[in-house]
């Protein structure tokens, strides 16, 4: 899964300062369809600033990003516009409405309607089963119960499923398993492997380097505000990576 010629996302030397402190000096990366790219770095290295720029939460001071070959103008650099361009972020804990069913969470903001006002429950459940089957997520619970009754791994799978179910081409996973136990982490990792098959591009932010090695095709190291190094997974050892993270 080496990078094909045409990247789906390009980040070109973006920078961002907060009150004179440069959180990000020079962030650059490329992302191809079907690729899992891990962004690693120490706390405060600028990872989350970089992610927030890609997601549209922050507008870069300098530099720009382009999606599917189209450069995003400054005035368009918003969450709404970038979502429309096909970028979805799945956060560690924010992505689920716990009291609602799994189908509702999958359809969040896009609930199918009958006669304009009614919820099309049948359609929602069918599609949910479809997505769950595709991601190879097994559920024992009823789809009519609150999602909070499901396991954490299943909940996170639904959140990821929502991102890809609506044709998002770039999914950003921000510490997707930080709150999960080992079994549930495994389940989410399986889902990430499944979405790779769909040709969806994935950016993974994780502190768990074992996980990064298990999942990522390519790794970008952020050090002191710069995207300092880039490795293919099979061309680097954990020790080399740790060195890159700590010393740049």
């Amino acid at each position: 899964m080496n990078s094909p010629a045409k990247p789906i996302l390009e980040v070109n030397s973006v920078s961002k300062a907060f009150g004179g402190v440069e959180a990000l000096r020079d962030g650059s990366l490329k992302l191809s369809p079907g690729e899992v790219l891990a962004i690693v770095g120490a706390n405060g290295a600028g990872k989350s600033t970089l992610i927030k720029i890609i997601a549209g939460v922050l507008t870069p001071d300098r530099g720009d990003i382009s999606i599917k070959g189209k450069s995003i103008a400054r005035q368009d650099h918003t969450v709404g516009f970038i979502r429309q361009m096909g970028v979805e972020v799945v956060y560690q804990d924010l992505a689920i409405v716990p009291n609602m069913t799994a189908p509702y969470n999958l359809f969040l903001g896009r609930v199918p309607r009958k006669f304009g006002i009614f919820v099309d429950e049948k359609k929602m459940q069918e599609k949910t089963r479809e997505v769950l089957a595709e991601l190879k997520v097994e559920t024992v619970q009823s789809l009519k119960r609150p999602i909070s009754e499901m396991s954490g791994g299943q909940q996170q799978s639904i959140a990821i499923g929502r991102a890809i179910a609506w044709g998002k081409e770039i999914v950003i996973l921000d510490e997707p398993t930080a709150a999960l136990g080992p079994n549930e982490t495994q389940q989410v990792e399986r889902v990430i492997n499944e979405i790779r098959k769909r040709n969806t591009a994935t950016i993974l932010i994780s502190h768990n380097l074992d996980q990064v090695f298990r999942l990522a095709d390519r790794l970008v190291v952020v050090h002191q505000g710069n995207t300092s190094k880039e490795f293919m997974r099979n061309e680097v050892t954990i020790d080399e990576l740790v060195k890159a993270i700590t010393t740049g």
Binding site: L94, I96, V119
Partner: peptide, 19 residues
Amino acid sequence: TVFGQQLKALGGNEKVLRL
């Protein structure tokens, strides 16, 4: 209805609903 579901969703997690 969608309205009814949104009531509960708003009570469940307003931040996600905004997103």
